[in-house]
Computed example of a mutant assay.
Amino acid sequence: MTSGTARPTAPPAPIRALHTGSGEPLLLLHGFMMSPHCWEQVAQRMAGRCEVFAPAFTGHWGGPELDGWFIDISALADRIEDQLDEMGWRTCHIAGNSLGGWVGFELARRGRARTLTAIAPAGGWQTPSTLQLRVGLKFLSLLPLVKIGKLLPDAITYHGLTRQAVALLLTKNPEAASRAGLEATITSALHCRAMIPMLVSGLRFPALEHLSTLRTPVRLLMCESDRVIPNRLYARRFLEELPDSADRILVHDVGHVPMLEAPDRIATLIAEHVYASRTRLRAV
């Protein structure tokens, strides 16, 4: 619940990566200004059937430091590939939300994905374009709030009204999001070192290649009440360009980060896609 329980004794701690469970290798990728914390409830539910790895992106809370001021999707994917190599994962199942979905498509292009579950994926715009500019301005408008938030005491930073505002942006049902999940989301945003570099570099990001040639089995999960990148505008390329074999699912009654409010449903939708793929043998 977003209110009514005692406040934790300390703010959440950064996580370099969640790594739990055994079975099919599953990579979980978080969104822009988020962290592996957003996957905690889904990871718990998947750990009985999958070896789950959810790393923090470069420049994000808990992740590797930025090298310079330019960072793009390719650089984020490079670092994830290095981590997969360190773990001995030549390929794995991938689920990514928002920015994580965009990086997931890049990793699929590189042949690293057995399956891809893209949850409200970012990147469904041409470069340059009005859609690209609009989403950039939306995140840029958060910059003053982040700057102020860093100066405030915890009692205000994690106040119920702050959590409610964050929940209203990212979920459809604020009361369904856990207090711990919302506090980790706030902390992730305040400690995202990649915020300005990615917003500036984003003007130069190349657009996603045409998706019709993608060979990886894809499940697209569109969030019905997405207030960050609404389906009406930002899902069009994915709907039109993905192969006919791709699943296209509208997840009802959830916002842009559905793992916060509906972890059971999201875990089930990922698991279905992972296990359906086991009947489709592919050379990798």
Rank of each mutant, 00 (worst) to 15 (best):
D244C: 05
R45G: 02
I270Q: 02
M1A: 15
P174E: 08
P64G: 10
P258T: 11
S277C: 15
V135Q: 12
K172M: 07
A43L: 10
G181C: 10
D72R: 12
S178Q: 04
R193A: 15
A13F: 00
G123S: 05
I71T: 07
G202W: 08
C38H: 03
H37R: 10
V251C: 05
H159I: 00
T127C: 08
E261V: 10
A6L: 14
A194R: 03
V42I: 14
L269C: 03
L29E: 04
L170Q: 06
L260E: 01
P206L: 07
V251N: 07
L142R: 13
I229C: 13
M195S: 09
F32K: 02
R179L: 11
R134F: 05
A6T: 15
V228C: 11
D253F: 09
R7N: 04
F53A: 08
T185R: 07
E106K: 06
K150M: 11
A77V: 09
M33E: 13
Q41V: 00
H252Q: 13
N173M: 01
L107P: 01
A56N: 04
R219P: 05
C50P: 03
T185N: 03
R232I: 08
Y234V: 13
L84N: 02
N173P: 01
S74A: 15
L28Y: 03
S35R: 03
M198C: 14
I249V: 15
L84W: 02
D253T: 06
T171V: 04
A283L: 12
T9W: 00
R278A: 09
G124Q: 10
G104D: 12
K172F: 09
R219T: 15
S129Y: 12
Q41F: 00
P12G: 09
P8W: 00
E209W: 00
H93C: 12
H256M: 12
L203I: 06
R49Q: 11
I186P: 01
R248H: 13
V218K: 03
F53Y: 15
G48H: 06
T127I: 04
G149K: 09
P64F: 07
S22M: 04
A122E: 07
G202I: 11
T115Q: 06
L18Q: 02
M33T: 15
G111S: 07
G96S: 08
P25S: 06
H273R: 15
L169R: 13
L66K: 09
S35N: 07
L152P: 03
F32Y: 14
G123E: 04
T20K: 12
H252K: 15
C223E: 08
P128A: 06
G31P: 12
P55Q: 05
G160L: 03
A271Y: 03
A56L: 06
L29Q: 05
T279N: 12
P11E: 10
S212E: 12
L281G: 01
L143R: 05
A10T: 12
M222N: 02
V135D: 01
A207D: 05
L66F: 08
V166A: 13
M46K: 14
R278C: 10
I249A: 01
E81C: 11
R16C: 05
V52Y: 09
E175P: 01
D247C: 10
S201F: 08
L145I: 09
L190R: 05
I71L: 14
M34C: 14
L269K: 03
H19N: 11
M198R: 02
